[in-house]
Design a protein around this nucleic acid. Sequence first.
DNA 1: TTGTAGGCGTTATCAT
DNA 2: ATGATAACGCCTACAA
Lengths: 323, 323
Amino acid sequence: MHDGTGFSPPTRKRVLAAAAAMGWVPSGPARGLAFRKTGIVGLLFPDLASFSESEEESPLFIDQVIRGAERAAAAAGVAVLIAATRGAGRKLARSVVGQVDGLVVLARSLPVKDIQIFSRSVPIVVLADRLNGSRLDYVGADNRGGMRELTAHVLTVHRFTRLAFVGGPARSPDSQERFAGFRMAMRAAGLSVPGRPAADGGFTEAGGARAMRALLASGKPPQAVLFGNDEMAVGGLSVLRAAGVRVPSGIAVTGFDDIALSRHVQPSLTTVKQPMRDLGGQAVRVLLARVAEPASRRQSLVLPTQLVVRRSCGCTTRRGMAA
Amino acid sequence: MHDGTGFSPPTRKRVLAAAAAMGWVPSGPARGLAFRKTGIVGLLFPDLASFSESEEESPLFIDQVIRGAERAAAAAGVAVLIAATRGAGRKLARSVVGQVDGLVVLARSLPVKDIQIFSRSVPIVVLADRLNGSRLDYVGADNRGGMRELTAHVLTVHRFTRLAFVGGPARSPDSQERFAGFRMAMRAAGLSVPGRPAADGGFTEAGGARAMRALLASGKPPQAVLFGNDEMAVGGLSVLRAAGVRVPSGIAVTGFDDIALSRHVQPSLTTVKQPMRDLGGQAVRVLLARVAEPASRRQSLVLPTQLVVRRSCGCTTRRGMAA
DNA sequence: TTGTAGGCGTTATCAT
DNA sequence: ATGATAACGCCTACAA
């Protein structure tokens, strides 16, 4: 059969145009089946907020990644299918895999084993988790270097020696990398290097507050607290204010990520800028490159981070919050 | 043909399971074609940031909507396809339409005409734009009521009479609705009702700052500035601080949306909470209901907003920024 | 039970 | 050129 009804000459073109004007759109599944390409890339991420019940959610990071991915995808003419894997989202993940030309998998959204398995049926790039030994493409940020630089800053320009590092979830690669950077700087300064973070703040504001309280209650508080991300730092700041401890004169504080909020808190937060948007964008670009060239060499892309010095570390910048 | 190779008995089940374990996943397009259902819902939104070049981006609203949509969709076992329509994203939009079982279209992401056209080939629910006269399902927030209540608060408890309303983009339904609420309250108080906003801040922080500067330069500044959203208010706050005007004693300020930032700025921002997450979630729910029951009655869902009184309006709450 | 034709809507190929 | 036809991979019938 041909185009449905019984047309004949190049009237066809006109008919097609007319159909389009009337709201007809070609069937995606049908094209996908025939063309063997859907024009969709998937993005899998963990929905951290649905794990810990009432914790204030802070999805800034993922949101930015999503936006970056969407942009890069749109630029290439493909759409983005997103799905959060809440713990055991295997079923949904499976269906996503079947729908896409390629998949970006954020760290901790899927068991490594599943990633490997799925990677047999669709190209996968792993975001923010250098799955050591894996053959998959990787895109991430220089968490270690960023935290090393930040720690060195606190150590050398502010001369603090009693630092505490507050980590995120123990299994988070980002948290681990940042802690590694912290340790490198401590070691380089000849200070004693802790075996693990002083506390686990779960990367949430509430968790950071809890960690800060614990630190305050622990006899001899540190001179500076380096939080594994901005949100924990914000939580810590609140606790310090409530406790009457001035920042940075009493205790210095730093974060990581450079979320919008960090410019606005009091005092403004010294942190490390992570190119969240770019992470998503580059991941998609790498993915599309692999889709186009399946046999190409494995890519491993580490995006630079950047120290952002504000007030909470003890520096006095001129750069206020100008509008 | 049957399952590819020539299997025979109920060995099939085992084979299927084995295949799954090895990374085989059923083809989405093939299932979609056979089932006439893809298990995907689409979400179209305008990417406001790509319009105005370098304006600080503030995608909080959309991000929350996306997250809400994703959750509701996941709960129903479907994935979400997202695509920003940057000005003339018609082509991508078309392909999205072909891929999904239903579509959520955010206000201003598509010309109304296109929405109508596409709605012939796929169920559509319109988010945050009550396309007057349209037969499409609608989900939105009570912007008008929220702003009316907020304005009444400023008017009656703080006794200000010279208020300025700073709007967002003139064509934004949200902005229009909020302004309408402002006018209602002004009229109810017997005050003169402006024909249009005192300024257009484009819903961005930079735009709000610009608007605030203009207001300050305009001879007799108002006693209170009601910004159409929080981000503009934050921009306004910065300008006031830089200008040495105290808030709220010199000029009171309010926002709208209740983004995370509003709790953290100094002074904390009085605003109206909009259920951003729920908007996305309900939109998806309504959509899925229609997909399941195409002939059902048109739904029009208006979610409540809620006045959030903090410090910037002149109130002195006890509730600090406790952690 | 277990194997075998269609059919879904589009693209690609092969005759004419 | 133009028009018919075979995949594409899965599902639902129906037949054996």
